[in-house]
Design a protein around this nucleic acid. Sequence first.
DNA 1: CTTAGTGCAAATCATTTGCAATAAG
DNA 2: CTTATTGCAAATGATTTGCACTAAG
Lengths: 138, 138
Amino acid sequence: MRHSHPKAANPLREAGLKSTPGRRAVLQVLQMASSPLSPDQIHAKVGSEICDRATVYRILESLGEASLVQRLILEGKTLYLPEESNHHHHHIVCRKCRATVCLDECLISPLEKKARQLGFRDIRHSLQLTGLCSKCSG
Amino acid sequence: MRHSHPKAANPLREAGLKSTPGRRAVLQVLQMASSPLSPDQIHAKVGSEICDRATVYRILESLGEASLVQRLILEGKTLYLPEESNHHHHHIVCRKCRATVCLDECLISPLEKKARQLGFRDIRHSLQLTGLCSKCSG
DNA sequence: CTTAGTGCAAATCATTTGCAATAAG
DNA sequence: CTTATTGCAAATGATTTGCACTAAG
């Protein structure tokens, strides 16, 4: 199968980014994580040997531009989530334990439509849904 | 009409907050504003004689808790908006000039319902819609 | 009065930046 | 090779805090 189907090919390459140890590590840490992580938590999990904190910020920015991760601001704290699927959807995050669940629909389009009618262009949206998950609200 | 209908009564009092010069000023500045303002812009408009910058932050926090203002994070910058109506709705903000328009509907409930079915309680949401207004996209 | 609210200066926290050294393609 | 990426240390910017003083109710 040589260089035919580069199956689980490096997503970094595909996004046109150089594949560096830091980037691979950050991406993996986010993919392993069960909930969104802060830049600091990511840096801690990656380890200072692999990558400096300032670099974690730079990496998160490039991964964000490449749509490999998604930024989220929860209660004023910046968190990152891997961008797994291509299909647009939203999440709900537990304010206590940060457990995260996908809510596969996106119902914003009627609002975007209205905004378009009002003359707005290049419309983007970001929806933060939070709550207390069953474990935390008990 | 003495102390009968306290018509345009002080919203601060009604919210159970002490009516201080700083709070009145911050509230008024936000109400006058045609677009969301940053804490720093608010401080500038209020004037240092009326109120210290640190106090502006404290005031914004208490006004936020009292639902007299709404916090908004646009492109990483924190902005504040007066909370005029009681009826829940969303806004769209121009990323360039920050012009703001209300989109009176809120279509999030189906998503909240789904989250509730997943066991989440005390669900809250925050939606950021941005675009370029007709003037800015021209 | 009594306590919440405030000014001021210092502390903290998150994020960014310059620059020289390093490594990916 | 050539240029993007990184480490390090320092700079920045935003927000918070301690404490003594002031004013609202």
